[in-house]
Amino acid sequence: MFDKSHFLGLLKEHGTDVELRKIFSYFSSSLDLYARAVRVISSGRSDGSLYLRPRFSTSREEIAALGSAWLRGQEEICRRIGDVEIERTCRRVKVVFAAGSDLDAVLRDDIPHHWLFDGIGDSVRRSKISESDQVYALFEALYGLAADYHLSWYIGDSLFELDVNFDPYFEFWRMGGRCALTESEFLVSNQ
Rank of each mutant, 00 (worst) to 15 (best):
Y136H: 15
W153M: 13
V84W: 00
A65I: 13
R60N: 15
S59N: 08
S42H: 07
H14E: 05
T89D: 02
L50W: 05
F172G: 03
D83M: 12
C78L: 06
V164F: 01
E85N: 03
V106E: 13
S184C: 00
R174N: 08
Q191I: 00
V95W: 10
D148R: 04
S132N: 06
F2W: 02
T89M: 08
Y169E: 09
T58S: 15
G156K: 10
D157P: 00
V18I: 06
F160A: 05
E62P: 01
S25G: 14
N165G: 06
A137H: 06
M175C: 09
Y26H: 12
F2H: 03
V18T: 05
R79A: 11
S46T: 12
L8P: 03
Y154P: 01
Y154F: 15
E61S: 13
R79L: 03
V124C: 11
E131K: 11
F56L: 08
D118I: 07
S158I: 06
P54L: 07
L107H: 01
R55P: 02
R39N: 15
S132L: 02
W173Q: 06
F172L: 03
R174L: 06
I129P: 03
S42C: 03
G9S: 11
D17F: 01
D102A: 14
F160G: 05
E183S: 07
S43F: 02
I155K: 09
K12T: 09
K12E: 02
F2V: 01
L66P: 04
D148E: 12
F172V: 04
M175R: 10
E13Y: 07
V84S: 03
A65Y: 14
S123W: 05
L181V: 00
L10D: 09
G177H: 02
I41C: 11
D133K: 12
A69D: 15
F56G: 00
L138G: 04
V164M: 00
G100C: 07
F166D: 04
R21T: 04
F160Y: 15
L10T: 07
S30A: 15
R174G: 09
Q191P: 07
P54A: 13
K4R: 13
